[in-house]
Design a binder for these strands. Structure first.
Lengths: 161, 161
DNA sequence: CCTAACTGTTAGGCTACCTAACTATGAACG
DNA sequence: CGTTCATAGTTAGGTAGCCTAACAGTTAGG
């Protein structure tokens, strides 16, 4: 419509639509998280520990576990919030806190067996619910969604930096 | 891989990926909402009032405003939570509560001029931030995202029912 | 050493949500 | 009509998750 700034106006429109979609998706997330097992925050943390746990990034030695500060950064929260969640997970027997041998200030957090199992169970259940929702879509819709997921992943990755 | 239930396993995989994407997108939403103006919940409510306000659904007469129960349903929260937010908006001068002339039990909520302006401002700002994020994508990525938005909208619509 | 930088915990506070209990109005029916 | 049941919203009390500020212990540098 506007010849002077077509790109910008399209970008803003896309931004608005995407925002709207995410805003509404909060219901969906809320419904998924309402299975009364693990809270969203706790599952996120457990999952992160699982992903990062086995082979921690670029570390030379096999320093098992993730440091509190790193957890906070990964989850996009402040350190005290991470501590709070970690303590809850620890009390629930899902995670363990151990001193870092190479730096006595630091704390290493690892999943327990129970934690690992809890992640698996919770994820399965939520995936099943989500799959139920997606099952009502057409094949084309699912294809479009699948094509967009890497893009959304790229958007999210941008924010980590 | 598995010939017996290829559709189901694909569906579950898609479900998992979509869930993951939404989970990570929470950062993005949080960042957008951290502009220190209106909280996410309040902006959602204001926006809903704006959308529903002018021409309320299938109502015969021009009953202006939205009822508290309807607001709660639209936002996916319980009535007391809606009341709470409405009171905050009212105190901030962004919304008004009036008795429903046709049912003295009911309350009609409408935006004030200030509320309308606040929605506009907050949305503009957040759209700009989001546009900034999206500007780093390739054209193909943006196209894929745009194609998926209606699908996500359809998913969200499913939940309303 | 002694100070400066860093890691994590504690303390206190806020928002947004929930359930349960209450008030007031409307509607149905004998 | 008047009692009874349903509906609309508010109030009260509680929880989860996040934040900032203040604190304690550890490491590293001058």
């Amino acid at each position: 419509m506007n010849a002077s700034e077509p790109a910008d106006s399209g970008l803003l429109a896309l931004a608005q639509d995407f925002r709207e979609a995410l805003r509404h998706s909060i219901y969906l997330v809320r419904r998924l998280d309402a299975d009364g097992e693990l809270s969203a925050a706790q599952l996120s943390m457990l999952k992160m520990l699982m992903d990062a746990g086995p082979a921690a990034g670029g570390g030379a030695s096999s320093a098992s576990g993730v440091r509190v500060g790193e957890i906070a950064r990964n989850l996009g929260v402040k350190v005290p919030s991470a501590t709070e969640q970690i303590i809850k997970l620890e009390r629930a027997g899902l995670a363990r806190r151990e001193p870092d041998p190479s730096d006595s200030r630091a704390v290493r957090v690892t999943l327990t067996e129970a934690g690992l199992a809890a992640v698996a169970t919770a994820n399965e259940r939520r995936n099943a619910v989500m799959a139920g929702v997606l099952s009502s879509l057409s094949d084309d819709d699912r294809a479009a969604l699948a094509a967009a997921l890497p893009v959304i992943g790229r958007i999210n990755a941008t924010l980590q930096a």
